[in-house]
Design a protein around this nucleic acid. Sequence first.
DNA 1: TACTATTTGTTCGTATGTATA
DNA 2: GTATACATACGAACAAATAGT
Lengths: 142, 142
Amino acid sequence: MAYRTSVIDRHGAHSWYRQLADQLRDCVEQGVYPPGGELPSEAELARQYGVGRDVVRSALALLRQEGLITSVRGTNAKVRAPVARREVTLGAGDELIGRMPSEPERIERLMEYGVPLLAIKRRSGAVELFPGDRVVITGPTP
Amino acid sequence: MAYRTSVIDRHGAHSWYRQLADQLRDCVEQGVYPPGGELPSEAELARQYGVGRDVVRSALALLRQEGLITSVRGTNAKVRAPVARREVTLGAGDELIGRMPSEPERIERLMEYGVPLLAIKRRSGAVELFPGDRVVITGPTP
DNA sequence: TACTATTTGTTCGTATGTATA
DNA sequence: GTATACATACGAACAAATAGT
């Protein structure tokens, strides 16, 4: 594979790691790295784009936050494949807000990075929490 | 103020920055750092807990992801104060999912770090996007 | 099984840029 | 103008998990 000379604007208004994240996001969206597929290693990306490992790691961290990729120590980062979703109905008077889980919450629920938590407060007062990528909230069926 | 000798378990199963994040999260939740209030500087936290600045920065990054704090260059990190919310009603047949915004989306909508995006697909097909911390989604009023 | 190479995770040090006080 | 503080970027080293031999 031909070396990418460098698509990073060294004196642009944006930081290198954000530019790199944009590039990689485009690659994912355009199928260069398909769902479930691997990205190159951090060292390889650093070589390809002519940046340090910190820049690569910061870019990958951003994409992890966005829920676009996952990383496991010892393995290349992977593009997250779509997950199975279940339906949850929001009834009359129920309320919902979205927020990021705290680390203890995330770990307890086996949630991946970059997945928001949807908190539904039922009219009864009961609170239910759902990973935002595993459910589709629906209004009552007509 | 008395120096905290060190509450970090140097040989524990968890990384230092995660332990520190847990400590700081507790401080916020228990009002040591109240909403709108400032945290100590990175350097001060590094001194207090006897760790390097990267450990402090990683911990703060985690809390930023959770939407618990905000940082502005040149100022200490602050505990995020509750924001004004508006109500949005989810009608019959409408669908909602939550995800993190990509960086372009986040910037375009002037969203802070750590705030999920709620995407509502109306039965008509129209799609509306809301910052998760600015809206309360409600079911139809009974 | 055991060993090795690869890869990501964590931590520290250092330096520069830039915004705020 | 100076000092403080956060953002970004480089390099280095080691730890820990994985994959392949």
